[in-house]
């Protein structure tokens, strides 16, 4: 593992200063992706700026909105009693990321900043029409993920929180890779407060995407049967040793129907 200089600032402004001064700096939150990437030689930052010292953690349910601070661990999100009532689909998603030990370290901000194509949170950010708050601005969930491991974040921009509007009902169902527990395919389905429906898919393509044909069908009738004939094209989907693109396309429909069935 290549060496680096470690920093642990206590204020976002100091973190940004450190990033600007670094030759090739990286922000780190839980480190669950960055540290393995450095071990594998996929990343070799000159400086690591650990955002753990910012103490950006906590879940707040207020009115029709749930705000999760960026440094909140998956375990803390999954265990939050208020969130379980407000958005059970999001609570369940957080409780299914990785394993208990990973959930004690990994954070929501780190997960979405990394934008792994097989990560779970992107499906909820897009599926629930969330808003990503940074130290500089607010970014709509739909505009946040721009490609494989690519986001709208600038290199020195720090996520501070994610704001989720409460839906009428929602659910997330994933088909995990049994070894890594990442989503081979994961589908988040939500009926939002205004009656519109969102179907967001992770794991299947280079980045999270919506399925407009399913959304329209579910707006007419929110039942698994409404989308039994709505398929996605396999052409642009991921294909690897774990699953072909055709299999992933098949899973999108199966998991979407299960999510509709489980939505509450």
């Amino acid at each position: 593992m290549e060496n680096f200089t470690y920093h642990r600032p206590h204020h976002a402004t100091d973190a940004v200063k450190l990033m600007k001064a670094a030759k090739d700096g990286k922000f780190m939150s839980g480190g669950m992706t960055l540290l393995p990437a450095i071990k594998h030689g996929l990343a070799s930052p000159s400086d690591i700026i650990d955002l753990g010292g910012l103490k950006h953690a906590g879940v707040a349910v207020s009115g029709s909105v749930v705000t999760i601070k960026a440094g909140t661990t998956h375990a803390a999100v999954a265990d939050d009693a208020g969130l379980k009532k407000a958005i059970p689909g999001l609570s369940k998603l957080a409780g299914g990321i990785g394993d208990p030990h990973v959930r004690n370290c990994g954070t929501i901000g780190g997960s979405i900043a990394n934008a792994d194509p097989a990560a779970d949170y992107p499906a909820a950010v897009v599926g629930l029409a969330a808003t990503v708050h940074t130290d500089q601005r607010k970014i709509a969930g739909d505009k946040f993920f721009t490609g494989m491991f690519e986001t709208a974040l600038k290199p020195d921009e720090i996520i501070t929180a994610v704001e989720f509007p409460m839906p009428k009902r929602s659910a997330y169902v994933k088909f995990p890779n049994p070894a890594s527990l990442y989503a081979m395919v994961g589908v988040f389905v939500a009926e939002l407060a205004d009656g519109s429906v969102r179907v967001a898919v992770t794991g299947a393509g280079p980045s999270v995407f919506r399925v407009p044909d399913m959304e329209k069908a579910l707006e007419k009738g929110f039942s698994p049967d409404s989308i039994s004939g709505v398929t996605v094209k396999a052409d642009d989907l991921n294909s690897d040793i774990h699953a072909s693109s055709a299999y992933r396309a098949h899973l999108v429909n199966v998991l979407a129907r299960r999510a509709v069935e489980q939505a509450k």
């Binding site: 650990d50 030990h101 370290c105």
Partner: peptide, 27 residues
């Protein structure tokens, strides 16, 4: 495994189980 999958390295930090192969000592 040294890749945060196998759990042979689990210790408790501030009362919570973590994989110590994927945590920096300095942190």
């Amino acid at each position: 495994c040294d890749t945060s999958q196998c759990g042979a390295c689990v210790v408790h930090v501030d009362g919570k189980a973590i994989k110590s192969c994927t945590a920096l000592a300095v942190a």
